[in-house]
């Protein structure tokens, strides 16, 4: 069955079973690496993407519910040559160890920063409570998200973190 999805501003026609969770469509049909398969059960947060401004676990949401909605993945925040504020901040503060959970963390942070560009550590901890990580960069992740807020504020364009492809 053909489904229309809008991902990072670009329209796509997908041929998939409508019950397929978004994650598999992003990774296998659209060849996007950002959203990660961690547990496949909505427990680890590494598949987090943003849908209409809200952080969503893409391994749990069937694509049929997403027609006509704005899906943003980490690829929509900037590129390796022109990183967006969140990406810039995570690179600047070296806020990754293995990095597998990080895109999910960043998308939760993206949803948070869209509504609050100056979050407290408490706000960040709450927004990222569903994102698990086993290694040692938690304090850097907090610092990077605060830094991204500063970068966005300096640019006075909170929405500038989201790029429109194509």
């Amino acid at each position: 069955m053909s489904i229309s999805l809008t991902v990072n501003g670009s329209p796509h026609q997908i041929d998939a079973d409508p019950s397929t969770p978004l994650l598999y469509v992003l990774r296998d049909d659209l060849a996007l690496n950002g959203a990660k398969y961690g547990c496949g059960l909505g427990q680890c947060g590494s598949c987090t993407v943003v849908v209409d401004g809200e952080a969503v676990l893409s391994c749990m949401v069937p694509v049929m519910l997403l027609e006509g909605r704005e899906i943003t993945t980490i690829e929509g925040l900037g590129t390796i040559d022109d990183p967006g504020p969140l990406q810039q901040a995570f690179i600047e503060l070296q806020a990754a160890q293995c990095g597998y959970c990080i895109p999910g963390m960043m998308m939760s942070a993206h949803a948070l920063l869209r509504r609050n560009a100056q979050p407290s550590d408490e706000d960040i901890r709450e927004a990222l409570a569903t994102n698990l990580c086993r290694c040692g960069t938690h304090m850097r992740i907090l610092a990077a998200i605060r830094r991204a807020g500063e970068l966005m504020k300096a640019a006075s364009l909170p929405e500038s973190d989201e790029r429109r492809a194509g």
Binding site: N33, K36, I74, I80, P83, I91, Q94, P103
Partner: peptide, 21 residues
């Protein structure tokens, strides 16, 4: 020296065996 693998990992570039297609 900044880690050379981090920029790819925070921008969705292929970085893991899972990203091979």
């Amino acid at each position: 020296l900044p880690r050379v693998d981090i920029p790819a990992k925070v921008t969705g570039q292929p970085a893991y065996v899972h990203d091979l297609r």
